[in-house]
């Protein structure tokens, strides 16, 4: 197996470690900049199976840093999970790649983790709501996860091992709101790779059963700062996610259609309570009758009414571009898709 020879020469991995990597399954949540780079590194390293979940599709503004995608993907508005899977399979045909085009909410993540029992979950998401869900799912199903995040030139990473390290909720007393995002303050690719370097190094350690780094790592690649902090004292005896009195608060969701403003994108996402394939023949004929032009591929359908672009995914989700107003989005949603 010349393919992995250099990795096997590295003593802490060796031939045995390579075999361990081959037997492991990693779940990557998010296929943006972090997800694309995490997935490519682990697929090249010869991981056995990778499941990658993402709700979005490829846009031109992604190409600056989301390394798995091409101009053609952006032109075709291919869902990121699908475009990623195609590229990953071309990189390493030995790896089983499972793409899931869906919003990683509590319901879906529990289903996937309970069914697949991945060996490690890699956070490549862009918000704290979903990270708190990952945090609870990790504790409930006893699967380690690796937090990673970045904005501007700053990034950080931390490994959460159930029953060993403090969890994310121990470190964060509340979900940060109004945080800087890549859409408001920008992001440079090098910091993405620095975060991913830490995440994938820890993922490989988990795969070969080596000791993970227990410290919280943070850095600013532009200003040349790097630090590691020992956070073990922050583990809380009454943490609702990881203590004996745990209730998994992030997994208790109300069963209702949810409207969420996607920060900085002039977009509202709607997730219907009823999950499953959206029937769109009726919608198509309605739009055609009104003379509205519809673009369609196997996974989504999009059309523009006035200044609003609607993107309808086959799993039922809808993105309405051109508004930050939930009420307006609700109106438009029920007007055209309800």
């Amino acid at each position: 197996m010349d393919r992995y020879s250099r990795q096997q020469l590295f003593a802490p991995i060796g031939e045995r470690g390579q075999q361990h990597i081959r037997e492991k399954h990693v779940l990557v949540i998010g296929a943006g900049a972090l997800g694309a780079a995490n997935a490519e590194t682990l697929v090249r390293a010869g991981i056995g199976k990778i499941t990658i979940i993402d709700r979005d599709y490829v846009e031109w503004s992604n190409l600056q840093r989301q390394q798995l995608y091409t101009e053609e993907d952006a032109t075709n508005r291919l869902p990121k999970a699908i475009a990623a899977a195609m590229r990953l399979r071309a990189i390493n045909g030995d790896v089983v790649v499972e793409p899931i085009v869906a919003d990683a909410d509590a319901c879906l993540l529990e289903q996937v983790v309970a069914r697949e029992r991945p060996h490690v979950i890699i956070d490549s998401t862009d918000n704290f709501d979903v990270r708190m869900i990952i945090n609870d799912v990790s504790q409930k199903y006893d699967v380690p996860w690796i937090y990673g995040a970045c904005v501007g030139s700053y990034g950080l990473s931390y490994v959460i091992v159930p029953n060993e390290t403090p969890c994310l909720r121990c470190l964060l007393e509340e979900v940060p709101l109004g945080n800087a995002t890549c859409d408001t303050v920008g992001i440079i690719s090098p910091v993405v790779h620095m975060v991913v370097a830490h995440q994938t190094a820890e993922a490989l350690k988990i795969c070969v059963h080596a000791q993970v780094n227990r410290k919280l790592v943070s850095f600013d690649i532009w200003h040349g700062q790097y630090r590691m902090i020992d956070v073990h004292k922050l583990k809380k005896d009454d943490c609702p996610s990881c203590s004996e009195r745990r209730t998994y608060p992030a997994l208790q969701y109300e069963n209702e259609t949810k409207f969420a403003v996607l920060c900085g994108r002039e977009t509202v996402q709607i997730r219907p309570a009823h999950r499953g394939e959206r029937e769109w023949t009726t919608l198509l004929s309605f739009l055609t009758k009104r003379g509205i032009q519809v673009e369609q591929n196997d996974y989504l359908l999009s059309f523009t009414v006035d200044s609003h672009r609607f993107v309808v995914f086959s799993d039922g989700r809808v993105l309405i571009h051109g508004t930050n107003d939930v009420q307006e989005a609700k109106r438009l949603y029920y007007q055209y898709l309800g």
Binding site: S124, F128, A149, G155, L156, P176, R227, I229
Partner: peptide, 10 residues
């Protein structure tokens, strides 16, 4: 003094 703040981007 080291100050680490959490961010959500990715």
């Amino acid at each position: 003094i080291e100050i680490v703040h959490f961010v959500g981007g990715g």
